[in-house]
Design a protein around this nucleic acid. Sequence first.
RNA 1: GCCCCCUUAGCUCAGUUGGUUAGAGCGCCGGACUGUUAAUCCGUAGGUCUUUGGUUCGAGUCCAAAAGGGGGCGCCA
Length: 480
Amino acid sequence: MKRTEIAEILRQPQVGTTVKVSGWVRSFRSNRFIALYDGSSFNTLQVVVDFEKFEEEFLKKIQFHACISVTGQLVESQGAGQSVELTAEGIELLGECSPDDYHLQPKNMTMEYLREKAHFRMRTQTFSAVFRIRHAVAYAVHKYFNDRGYYYMHTPIVTGSDAEGAGEMFRVTTLDLENLPRTESGEIDFKEDFFGKSTNLTVSGQLQGEIAAMALGKIYTFGPTFRAEQSYTTRHLAEFWMIEPEVAFFDIFDNMELAEDFVKFLIRHILDNYPDDPGLPRQAHQGRGKNMKQEDRRPMGLVDMLRFVVDNNFERITYTEAVDILRNSNTYKKGKFKFDVQWGKDLQSEHERYLVEKHFQKPVVVRDYPKSIKAFYMRENDGTEPGKETVAAMDILFPYIGEVIGGSQREERHSKLLERIHAQGIHEEELWWYLELRKFGGCPHAGFGLGFERMVLFITGMSNIRDVIAFPRAAGQAEF
RNA sequence: GCCCCCUUAGCUCAGUUGGUUAGAGCGCCGGACUGUUAAUCCGUAGGUCUUUGGUUCGAGUCCAAAAGGGGGCGCCA
């Protein structure tokens, strides 16, 4: 007999029919009621067992997270809590799960404990919900761009450029580390390496994305990204997924509009299509308050906060305005910021959090940052005071998770770009192709990067980014 | 890279100013019950207090180092 997924049974219960379901045991109550889930739904199907029909020894093996197949008749439930249930006629034990040495238990376990048991944590209600939502957000990303005529580009994972402008890179090599080939002058001879040159894992698909935008007009990338930073925070990973749209003829304002609309679409997609799933992460989200300092607690429930973000316009300010707001704040005047606020210095997390959580109490888009603190490819703004040059960069700051998007209008003027490449000590030969884009049929364009896991973190209300990716890679951590 | 915190039963935790035999809840195991919703009730077992070294008459408790974990900062998405 062919098995039916639990989601299908719950969606359109055919009372009176005989069905076969397969799944894992979430609980076995009263030696009579099995709560069975198979991943197709957030909900379980109640299987009713007449214990006199089965061997006692057999029923004892139906334990927490054991895997079984059940054949039986769907009937209307006599109990409260579910409308239909399955009367078990035959049960097949597919996989035992002895609680003696099994890692999980039907009780609250800490996120830290489950992180160490990543091969089982998706079986919990919280993590299965998180990964269903993760899927849904990924789907929404593609839907959003596809519906608007964007093309999905696959940019390379291995890059020969070490000037992508976004942090430390992981080296990719097939050289024998015990016996490195050397040039006459004693340096490592990368001509002997697999690609005939030094290569790394990508830190951004943006530069190649720009190539595509200069031909296809509107593109986006969505792929793995690698940064070898020693970041020990709840919002950094060494391997994460990033979405990077790049659009020809866009300026910084078009870019901000796209970013806001896009992010709201993602959240709305989850609110509209997954009304059940946010439930458990929401509990996690509110429960986390227990060990938190008062000032760090979230005042709103998760769904309320998601609605709030979707229903309000993001606040838009310039970097210069942000500095003014911060310097005029009571927090600043009382000397309560750890770091000084000064035009020309980058905003610190505490400053961003003040703007978002205290001052505006909604997502904030900050633009026009000082040229000196931003990447070489960002377009220099016209008409700024000498010494106060800015670039058309923008960051979108969210409550609790900070920067979720970073983007800019790109410098499309060849001479300006070359100037900045030189000023930052980058070898222009590295970027010859990037420079040529400005020489031959270039145009104004803009784009941004959205940290996928940060978005999922925000939407699920989880508190550590390592809990929204199945197998987190971070400094000192690559198990599973 | 810098700073802080944690490590006691399978899990989550308590353990007073250093003082006899280290406790609880849940889980496991055994039993009872059988229309339950993390079922309930009764009972049993379960600990080299992360490791190493030190202080002390005496260390789960104090000190130092190591290992593992968590958090903050920086870097950013």
